[in-house]
């Protein structure tokens, strides 16, 4: 199939960017979206042009690096999938595809489609860990954890920090990411001793990065490649309210 791509090109963080249109021919159904971009890049390099920069790493839907806004949807049109898991069989001959970087003040564009998501690292570093010594691996049932809590914690921990929640949110809010990181510890006994300190610190770090407010529109959940549930946001709100009252 033959496609037209409208791609955001930006030399560096300081420069202004703009859309550049490219024609790409002979795209097959079997190609992944990133492979299609690889082929376009090979053509661009062969012509002596600068290749389109985009983030990618595992290409298996695990790492969360491939952050692309494709036709106004974070990670493209598929649900619960990253950009690298999007395949060209979802498109038809003659389609025009608009590819933009994730847009948020807290995710500045570094080059073309690559954004700096280190804001997430700083939020995580503010409290997204357990600092008490948990010792060696215990006997399986030494610490009893209700099955549903273990499952909810595991679901929250499946967040890969790709930033699709921020990209998809009409307010560029990072609440789903922070909610997942707070929840994965709040649900487990090992995370409980620091629960107040953690949620207060992570909320503060989130606001300091300049993310927007959550207006509960749930585009984050719909766009999350790991299907993180918005019930985690309610838990974050609960944890924050609890900590605001109880923290010493």
């Amino acid at each position: 199939m033959n496609l037209t791509l409208k791609v955001w090109r930006q030399k560096d963080a300081q420069s202004d960017g703009g859309f550049v249109e490219y024609k790409i021919a002979d795209v097959t159904n079997d190609m992944s979206f990133l492979e299609m971009l690889d082929i376009l890049n090979e053509e661009l390099v062969a012509k002596g042009s600068d290749a389109i920069s985009f983030d990618h790493d595992c290409r298996e839907g695990i790492c969360g690096m491939c952050a692309l806004m494709i036709d106004g949807q974070a990670h493209g049109k598929d649900k619960a999938a990253t950009s690298c898991q999007l395949h060209m069989r979802r498109y038809q001959d003659g389609d025009t595809i608009t590819i933009e970087p994730f847009r948020a003040k807290a995710f500045p564009v570094l080059k073309d489609l690559v954004v700096d998501r280190s804001a997430f690292d700083r939020i995580q570093a503010a409290g997204g860990f357990v600092s008490v010594a948990t010792g060696n691996a215990q006997d399986a049932n030494a610490i009893l954890i209700p099955k549903q809590n273990a499952e909810k914690a595991m679901d929250a921990a499946s967040c890969i920090g790709c930033g699709a929640c921020v990209a998809a949110c009409p307010n560029a809010s990072a609440m789903l990411f922070v909610a997942a990181k707070v929840s994965q510890y709040a649900l487990l006994p090992q995370g409980r001793p620091e629960r107040e300190k953690r949620v207060l610190a992570m909320r503060e770090a989130m606001d300091a990065e300049g993310f927007g407010h959550c207006t509960n529109e749930y585009e984050c959940e719909a766009s999350c490649p790991k299907g993180i549930n918005v019930s985690n946001i309610a838990r974050l709100n609960r944890e924050f309210l609890r900590a605001a009252v109880l923290a010493e």
Binding site: W8, G72, T98, R103, N171, E219
Partner: peptide, 15 residues
């Protein structure tokens, strides 16, 4: 929080 708007924004139907 989003100083540069998207050229295309359609979301995934949650709104």
């Amino acid at each position: 929080a989003r100083p540069v708007a998207y050229e295309v924004y359609q979301g995934k139907g949650a709104r």
